[in-house]
């Protein structure tokens, strides 16, 4: 009887160092950000240790510079917030649409070649993100590969403006995050019992019906995991909008960066960072709830 309790105590004791680091490293910096969001911006950056809710106020509202009593909704921030969410959702959908056939293709290869295909999926990770993003810039700039080819082929007369637009950001993010969708989808398909697919055909289901009623429900957890893996880094993306968006089409990550640099308003930056965190946590909770609903009846 004493045995399990003893080992239980040991377990905690052995975990203690890791837990301490986890708690300190995870909550410490977060706490600093939280505290800073309630301070007063300092001269040319930094903070003054005076309590203020102005940072939080400015996340959602703006005061007219010349008439502080004139308060209105901060449409600029809301636009950026909405753009971040919308672009991230679009990125997720594009990755899902492209990722599904890719993962399916890999999952249906003979077992011994699957590793090779998976290996190929990871190749982009060998090159630094920044360099890959600049390479995309090279592809879509006015004098870049795509425009030059199209003009040469006589399809267009003048270059299409692709760089420094939301399209460019979307393209960059979909490219960068696609593997994060393919891998969990593949993991889900790998476990798929193909006999069920055959059974579906045997029962005279059409291909579309098999896809809708057999395959998709079974790989749904993969879709959900992939969506989360794509959506969360997308909404906090910094490099892609910075390089491909041209500094005018901001996303949340760039807006936060702006407050700590040129904007010289650290409390606002801190408040925005926590806002981003809340969105991410909300997305995760949504994920867990959907997952529980999925698995609830099966276990119960």
């Amino acid at each position: 009887m004493a045995e399990p309790r003893e080992s239980h105590r040991w377990k905690w004791l052995l975990c203690a160092p890791a837990l301490t680091i986890l708690v300190l490293a995870a909550s410490g910096p977060l706490l600093i950000v939280l505290v800073y969001s309630f301070l007063t911006p300092g001269n040319m950056g930094g903070v003054i240790w005076e309590f203020s809710t102005e940072g939080w106020f400015r996340v959602f509202f703006r005061r007219d510079i010349f008439d502080p009593a004139d308060v209105s909704l901060n449409t600029a921030h809301l636009t950026i917030l909405w753009r971040s969410v919308w672009l991230s959702l679009q990125t997720t959908v594009i990755c899902a649409v492209l990722g599904f056939p890719t993962a399916w293709f890999i999952a249906t290869r003979p077992a011994n070649t699957r590793t090779v295909w998976l290996f190929l999926i990871t190749i982009p990770f060998w090159t630094n993100l920044l360099i890959r993003t600049f390479a995309i810039q090279e592809l879509i700039r006015n004098s870049g590969t795509i425009n030059t080819l199209l003009i040469w082929a006589g399809v267009i007369d003048a270059p299409i403006q692709m760089l420094f637009s939301e399209f460019a950001i979307l393209l960059g993010m979909a490219y960068v995050f696609l593997p994060l969708m393919v891998l969990p989808l593949y993991a889900a398909m790998d476990k798929l019992d193909f006999r069920l697919v055959e059974a579906g055909y045997d029962l005279y289901a059409s291909r579309l019906q098999v896809l809708r009623h057999v395959i998709l429900p079974l790989v749904k957890p993969g879709f959900i995991a992939g969506s989360i893996l794509v959506f969360i880094p997308s909404i906090g993306a910094y490099v892609t909008p910075r390089v491909l968006g041209g500094g005018r089409t901001l996303m949340l990550g760039n807006l936060i960066d702006l407050q700590f640099g040129q904007g010289r308003n650290w409390p606002l930056g801190a408040a925005l960072a926590i806002t981003l965190l809340v969105i991410v946590v909300a997305a995760l909770l949504f994920y867990l709830r959907t997952l529980n609903r999925e698995e609830g009846p099966r276990h119960g």
Binding site: R62, I65, H77, T79, L250, L258, R264
Partner: peptide, 11 residues
């Protein structure tokens, strides 16, 4: 004041 104008502009 400049910072405020600037922040509005950069958004």
């Amino acid at each position: 004041i400049y910072s405020q104008i600037w922040t509005e502009l950069m958004q």
